[in-house]
Design a protein around this nucleic acid. Structure first.
Lengths: 118, 118
DNA sequence: TGTGGTACGAACAAAAGTGTAAGTAATGAC
DNA sequence: GTCATTACTTACACTTTTGTTCGTACCACA
């Protein structure tokens, strides 16, 4: 996505951290809007503009970035139709589909404990 | 942790985002070292200095911040012993223990797909 | 000729997260 | 009195992430 300086402690630590399968997994869904996007795509293909309407607060730029990251991580498949005006559809990959049951548990956990700090 | 400006779009979006149970849950473990800390605490209490030794790359400041955040979110319990030199022990709360099985699945998913982008 | 819709891209700015380097309190051991 | 130990705290700098604003290509259609 954005260019990074190599050899910064930040980056070095990142390498160390992603050696952990758990951290690796969480990093993949760590972007601000990624989870919501995956959730919406869980049972349907959606176009860029449709996602944009579903999440009015996300900017086009952010949506682009998050989708690109998801695509890059192999969680989302991007299909471009050579039409005018352009049409691009996004859908989950099998790898992402395997994530969904975990999502449900996470969601249940979140729901159970939300607001009950302590 | 750090003070935030209210009313920034960033903060407003955060409110919107954490309405989603899923995003809420992921945010709780989103800090850079939180997952590793929880993992280490999964079967034992540990002192501040012990955690620091386990993760040589984390700075004391970061360790403090992450532990404070975890405590604030009700995932970690902090026990201070009135001794000199000070002794502070950290352990998981029941809420965090409920997270562990999900962690295992996340970890398995990460292990399966790591390196297999696409 | 001009307008409209789609899915972006680029330049910039703001905010948050993370790392660096130093310092602190309390007290028991020497 | 000095030093060592533990668990921090503070001030600052740097990196990444997120948001703002503007602009683009393409062609159908009016």
């Amino acid at each position: 996505m954005t260019k990074r300086k190599l050899n910064s402690t930040f980056t070095l630590n990142e390498s160390f951290l992603t050696e952990c399968d758990l951290t690796y997994a969480v990093n993949k869904i760590g972007g601000r809007w990624k989870i919501l996007i995956i959730d919406k795509l869980s049972d349907q293909k959606l176009r860029f503009s449709e996602l944009n309407k579903i999440f009015p607060l996300i900017t086009e730029r952010m949506l682009t970035l998050q989708l690109r990251a998801l695509e890059c991580d192999g969680l989302v498949k991007r299909t471009v139709y050579a039409e005018v005006p352009p049409r691009v559809e996004y859908e989950l990959t099998p790898m992402a589909l395997e994530f969904l049951p975990i999502f449900k548990q996470l969601s249940a956990w979140g729901n159970k404990h939300k607001g009950l700090t302590k």
